[in-house]
């Protein structure tokens, strides 16, 4: 509990940095924010009006204070296309993005960690070479390209996957919203047909993202397993006659997981970024595609809101990773 409190204190400067950067992106950089916020069709008078309304004619510290006050009250401005507040737009779309990202992460960890362990335990074997190829190819494939290849292959050629248009077939009705995750909500509602349909829609985009995040996880698992397996304490465990299974799983694996958990932070960074591209390819109604649409219409309030939301989400994820790390490693627990 004390560790948690201490860790929470350390994210304060990070959050402060995030707010400053988003403020800089909104107000200070070249270009006319008033024109941005007014939208491309606004005339000079309305731009001036917005400038005063936004307080852009006041000194920077005052603007910053106003910006922080807006953030604190959840005021991120309105989206031009819908006229709705950006915050509520983001909130309704977030579950779709979260479902996709988490689905991809679970999928890629389920494949990457066993693959990395096997590759390290049987170094130089066929599976090791396979791991090498997959990881090198995985980081080289642009996600939007893999997504399109999957669509062509599994939708157009084979017909296995449904059309890449969102989270659910239009003929099916959405289950009552509880978690916002369609798969979970439909399971809770007991509607198996919707579960199947939602999973079918999720499969391709999640696989696309998973293939991308698989590489760094498998690579790091293999590397850290290799270094732990050649470490002195594993030699001691072997010399004490412990079973290979115990040596690999209890002794080596837990130690090897430490760098892998750290890598997850980077993987999340990749995933959240790649998410934007995958959502565009599969017309997935998440916050990424929302931001891209706003970007095309030069509607900047949603874009800024999106950047800020992603940063906050990422900070929270990193916090979770740190806590998990502390659970595995007693050295961190004692003197943080």
């Amino acid at each position: 509990m004390r560790t948690l409190a201490r860790r929470l204190v350390t994210i304060v400067p990070t959050l402060f940095g995030v707010v400053i950067v988003t403020f800089l992106l909104t107000r200070v950089l070249p270009g006319d924010p008033a024109a941005y916020f007014a939208g491309p069709t606004a005339d000079q008078a309305s731009i001036e009006q917005i400038r005063t309304a936004l307080g852009l004619d006041r000194p920077l510290p005052v603007q910053f204070a106003a910006y922080v006050r807006d953030l604190a009250t959840g005021n991120l401005g309105n989206a031009l296309s819908t006229g709705q507040p950006v915050l509520s737009e983001l909130a309704t779309r977030l579950p779709a993005s979260a479902e996709l990202t988490l689905g991809a992460l679970i999928l890629s960890m389920a494949v990457a960690i066993p693959l990395g362990i096997l590759a390290a335990v049987r170094e130089g074997s066929l599976i090791d070479h396979a791991c090498r190829v997959v990881t090198t190819a995985g980081v080289s494939l642009p996600v939007f390209f893999t997504g399109l290849l999957f669509v062509y292959l599994f939708y157009y050629l084979l017909g296995w996957a449904p059309a890449p248009v969102g989270r659910l077939d239009v003929y099916l009705s959405e289950p009552p919203r509880i978690t916002g995750f369609l798969t979970l909500d439909s399971l809770l509602a007991g509607d198996l047909e919707v579960v199947r349909a939602a999973l079918a829609q999720l499969a391709l985009p999640a696989a696309t993202l998973a293939l991308f995040s698989l590489a760094p996880i498998a690579r790091m698992t293999r590397a850290s397993m290799l270094s732990v397996l050649s470490s002195e304490f594993v030699r001691t465990a072997r010399a004490a006659g412990l079973k290979p299974r115990t040596v690999v799983l209890t002794y080596a694996f837990r130690n090897a997981m430490l760098p892998v958990v750290t890598t997850l932070g980077m993987v999340f960074s990749f995933l959240l970024g790649a998410n934007v591209l995958v959502e565009k390819v599969f017309a997935w109604p998440g916050i990424g595609s929302f931001a891209v649409e706003a970007l095309i219409q030069s509607d900047y309030a949603p874009v800024q809101g999106f950047v800020l939301a992603m940063a906050l989400l990422y900070v929270a994820l990193n916090l979770a990773i740190d806590l998990i790390y502390g659970l595995i490693d007693p050295r961190v627990r004692l003197d943080a």
């Binding site: 992106l25 960074s269 959240l272 934007v276 591209l277 999106f306 950047v307 992603m310 900070v315």
Partner: peptide, 17 residues
């Protein structure tokens, strides 16, 4: 501070701004 953002998202924000 830079690392606090998902990198591609930050790049989007910078180019947009």
């Amino acid at each position: 501070t830079i690392m606090a953002f998902p990198l591609f998202v930050l790049a989007m924000g910078i180019v947009a701004a």
